[in-house]
């Protein structure tokens, strides 16, 4: 189970709008790759090209070295969730999975397996139109998992899920990657992917902005900053600034310090007799790291001309 997704200089334009502009990256097996960017950045278009639904103008999207359209049994290689609303509202959830299973030549029993896997059991007999958005997301995930594929392409799978659902999907993504699958998950909310993504591909206006491992990204974003919690914030800030550190107030009793190691800060504060309740190395959140990463990227700025 080690199949990769490989994008080579992928380009797609719709009329005069360039949706994807020379995109190249690889989604490795055994990892959750977060595919992020603002709305309209080209994430969904890229995913449709991976699935052979939209034809690229240039370049190629390969799954396990092949174009999607030439895969003999695609649902067994790539599981996809593009839009949880893409079900006929009059069809029962179970029947929706059944036609997919039949198209892929999978046994009927597999439908019940994925129904249980995504926790759809109690509502599988309901018509899709009567399901909540969260349940429809689970139905879409069930469809993606039907063929037990080594590659998963999920477009905003956490959309519409309640907090428990988001926790659940993080765990699901982790376990899918742990099986050795290549998982590509798009999102425009970084917090949804916190703690589950191993790798991050960021795009803006169809171009690659970042392609990095999450660990490196977080380490770089956290830098050598130290968080100090003290009731005497002003005095502490003056003291540390005079000692050569860069300080900023990041909360009512919180000061973020960079340029001084934690040991030296503790020594300085104790020397002056300033009370503090916490001195800890700062850990950036994925969202913070992402914001830092993209702050300067022009692709994320307000578009000068109208853009879809």
């Amino acid at each position: 189970m080690s199949t990769t997704i490989e994008l080579r200089d992928l380009r797609k334009r719709y009329g005069r709008t360039v949706a994807v502009d020379g995109l190249s990256f690889t989604v490795a097996p055994g990892e959750v790759t977060a595919f992020v960017g603002p709305n309209g950045a080209g994430k969904s278009t890229t995913m449709r090209m991976i699935l052979g639904l939209d034809a690229p103008d240039e370049g190629a999207a390969l799954v396990g070295g092949q174009r999607y359209r030439s895969l003999p049994s695609p649902l067994r290689v790539v599981g996809a969730l593009l839009d949880a609303g893409a079900v006929h509202p009059g069809r029962r959830a179970r029947d929706h999975l059944l036609w997919m299973a039949r198209a892929a030549g999978l046994p009927r029993g597999r439908v019940e397996e994925v129904v249980e896997l995504v926790g759809l059991g109690p509502v599988a007999g309901r018509r899709a139109g009567a399901l909540s958005l969260g349940m429809r997301q689970r139905l879409g995930l069930a469809g993606a998992l039907l063929g037990d594929p080594p590659v998963l392409v999920l477009d905003e799978p956490a959309n519409g899920l309640d907090p428990q659902g988001i926790v659940w999907i993080r765990g699901l993504l982790r376990s899918l990657a742990a099986d050795g699958r290549a998982v590509l998950v798009s999102s425009h909310l970084m917090s949804e992917l916190e703690g589950s993504a191993d790798h991050l591909v960021a795009i803006g206006r169809g171009r690659l902005v970042a392609d990095t491992s999450v660990r490196d990204l977080l380490a770089a974003a956290s830098g050598d900053r130290v968080v100090v919690r003290t009731a005497q914030r002003t005095e502490a800030m003056t003291l540390l600034a005079n000692a050569g550190a860069t300080v900023s107030a990041t909360g009512r009793e919180v000061v973020t310090v960079s340029g001084l190691p934690a040991e030296r800060i503790v020594a300085l504060l104790s020397q002056r007799g300033l009370a503090f309740s916490e001195v800890a190395a700062h850990r950036a959140s994925l969202e913070e790291a992402y914001m830092e990463l993209t702050r300067d990227a022009v692709e994320f700025g307000a578009p000068a001309t109208g853009e879809a």
């Binding site: 699935l51 639904l53 999607y68 030439s70 695609p74 593009l82 893409a86 469809g143």
Partner: peptide, 18 residues
Amino acid sequence: TSEYKRGMIRTTFAASPR
């Protein structure tokens, strides 16, 4: 057309690209 309306045609063509 019901498949086009809701985007289900993509699920159909992803399942059977021919």
